[in-house]
Design a protein around this nucleic acid. Structure first.
Length: 549
RNA sequence: GGUCUAUUAGUCAAGGGGUUAAGACACCACCCUCUCAAGGUGGGAACACGGGUUCAAAUCCCGUAUAGACUACCA
């Protein structure tokens, strides 16, 4: 009877499970090599949480000389969004998430898009029907809803199981009658589970977790013949020889379903690594990052904001292994490729997405680049997002690189640039066209400051290009002395009443006049880059500004 | 409601029976110092609560509280 039922439901499926299995041979990999997969669903943009998953798949496979493949999980045609597949590919490319085979690439285990694997799933669904392990269910949405409501009122487990699974007992004749009527149906498993028994999930990250056995007659094929996630996961990861399923821990509760499916099909289940989901704090509450609610976590946001892809990778690495950050700070000449990640060091609890931390990582990242690299990377960004500044960058290449070099090669590099965007506001005073446009705006912010204009004018005449730092500083100190300012801050502090101020005040005056700021990198070097003529020009500019007040 | 998970300083976190309970960021003080940044020294600051097991509990067990995930013909 089951044979007849199977033929009735799947007349077009003539491949056997054995023939299908033969299409997916064992992979020839070394002991310990992990086969992982990234399985995004093309239902919109990718957010940072999705990217994290892809990152983990990628590094764990790479680290063990295994295979990471990309499988497009598009079984939900209702939610599919036009162009989402391209967005996913672009994101993986932008963030340098490497995968060896899969959607958009070659590979011997395809197709790598689930909608093209429909017949494969049906081969195994047919087999389950044949073995009496699955059956067609003709229940309507209304019936299902009614059952659920009753279960909720009675505080029972919701779903189709036990005596709720009335279609389990449909006779062949009844099925035929439904089919003749054109009634739509799904394929459900006949769950052999016992609610009172428990199964163990040996999770690579979280350790052993005890869960109740599945008793639900889970849907494996929807009414359009497309598999549910649960069935597609089991069939695909078996055939494609996945060794480690890395996915968010929101999947832990459905693990019993997956284990049961593997057992019903007589397959060995892969290992699982359930990572914490990325959460955010909103109105004091913590919740899972959501595609619909949190567009600011879209990966395209990072690109537009000028956050380097590598910095995002570093952030994902700190999320991935709790000991990564410390290691990275201690190994200033290493990159994340040098670090060995392990499941054991992955965080077990929820992980709050922290944009401030990412910001900090960006600063550290930039501080380790050469000035040339910062210049080139910022140029690439601005060519796309701020073309007029990009032109200015080209026109002032040498000056900008000199500026970026200030305090860069020292043991204690500056950390004032966090994004490609920041270069403009951090360096604007080095670019004459921007400075003479914008400086007045900046000057105005400090109106309460009183500076001795005549001193500035005189200073501009005694400044000598080519002075070493010591010579320069000596000259400034002498200059301070001659005009009633203490040449040492300490001397001034000891008896402030004897001086107009100290050498620091002189420096501040110069700094403010030539940059419009009270905080900048090393003043000597800025002066050296600008040169004497420019200094004079800027002093005049400042004087004019003060006079116009 | 049910199932599962988590809870160590402002934040991220190490430690899984015996520790003066690491470390980082942040904060405070001092030092260095032309400003800022960076750096140095020092400091304040934590095991959610209640029981139990034990010579000994942050660590193991049981409750409670709080937070999160799941509970679809979504993934």
């Amino acid at each position: 009877m089951n044979n007849e039922l199977a033929e009735l439901l799947f007349p077009n499926i003539d491949k056997t499970p054995e023939e299908t299995e033969a299409l997916f041979p064992q992979r020839n990999l070394k002991e310990g090599a992990m086969v992982t997969r990234f399985g995004p669903s093309p239902t919109g943009f990718m957010h940072i949480g999705n990217l994290w998953g892809a990152f983990l798949d990628s590094i764990m496979a790479k680290e063990t000389n295994g295979i990471c493949y990309l499988r497009m999980e598009d079984t939900d045609s209702k939610r599919e969004v036009e162009g989402a597949k391209e967005l996913i590919l672009n994101a993986l490319d932008h963030f340098h998430i490497h995968y060896d085979e899969g959607f958009g690439k070659d590979g011997s285990y395809g197709p790598y898009i689930q909608s093209d694997r429909k017949e494969i799933y049906q081969v195994f669904a047919k087999e389950l029907v044949k073995n009496g392990q699955a059956y067609p269910s003709f229940m309507t949405e209304e019936e299902l809803q009614e059952i659920r409501q009753g279960q909720e009122i009675r505080k029972e487990i919701t779903g189709i199981y036990g005596h709720y699974a009335t279609d389990r007992d449909l006779s062949l004749e009844e099925v035929k009658k439904h089919l003749e009527n054109g009634d739509s149906y799904v394929i459900r498993i006949k769950s052999p589970g016992d609610m009172n028994k428990q199964i163990i999930l040996h999770d690579c990250i979280k350790g052993d977790i005890l869960l109740p056995e599945n008793i639900i007659d889970e849907v494996i094929l929807k009414k359009d013949g497309i598999p549910t996630y649960h069935f597609a996961h089991v069939v695909d990861d078996h055939l494609m020889k996945t060794t480690h399923v890395i996915r968010g821990d929101e999947w832990i509760p459905s693990y019993p379903k997956h284990l049961q499916l593997f057992q019903m099909l007589g397959w060995k289940s892969p290992k699982y690594a359930h990572h914490a989901t990325l959460t955010k704090k909103e109105d004091g509450k913590i919740r899972k990052l959501s595609k619909r609610k949190d567009p600011e976590f879209s990966v395209s946001y990072y690109k537009e904001a000028g956050i380097p892809a590598e910095a995002v990778r570093l952030y994902l690495a700190t999320l991935s292994n709790t000991n990564f950050e410390e290691w990275y700070l201690q190994n200033k000449d290493k990159t994340l490729e040098d670090f060995t990640f392990s499941y054991k060091k992955m965080p077990v609890g929820g992980t709050l997405f922290d944009i401030e931390k990412l910001n900090n990582i960006c600063r550290t990242y930039f501080s380790r680049l050469t000035a040339d690299a910062v210049y080139e990377d910022c140029l690439v960004y601005n060519l796309e997002y701020d073309t007029s500044f990009a032109q200015l960058m080209k026109d002032n290449k040498n000056r900008l690189i000199s500026f970026l070099n200030i305090e860069r090669n020292a043991k204690r590099p500056r950390k004032d640039i966090a994004t490609y965007k920041d270069l403009k506001q951090e360096s604007f005073y080095m670019l004459d066209s921007l400075f003479f446009d914008d400086a007045k705006v900046t000057y105005r912010e400090m109106e309460e400051k009183k500076y001795d204009i005549t001193l500035l004018e005189e200073y501009a005449t005694i400044f000598e290009e080519g002075d070493s730092y010591e010579q320069w500083y000596e000259r400034v100190k002498n200059f301070a002395d001659e005009h009633g300012y203490a040449s040492e801050v300490k001397t001034y502090k000891a008896s402030p009443e004897e001086y107009k101020g100290h050498v620091g005040d002189i420096c501040e005056m110069i700094r403010f006049a030539i940059t419009g700021r009270t905080k900048t990198p090393d003043l000597y070097q800025i002066l050296s880059i600008l040169g004497k003529e420019n200094l004079k020009k800027r002093v005049k500019f400042f004087q004019k500004y003060l006079q116009e007040l």
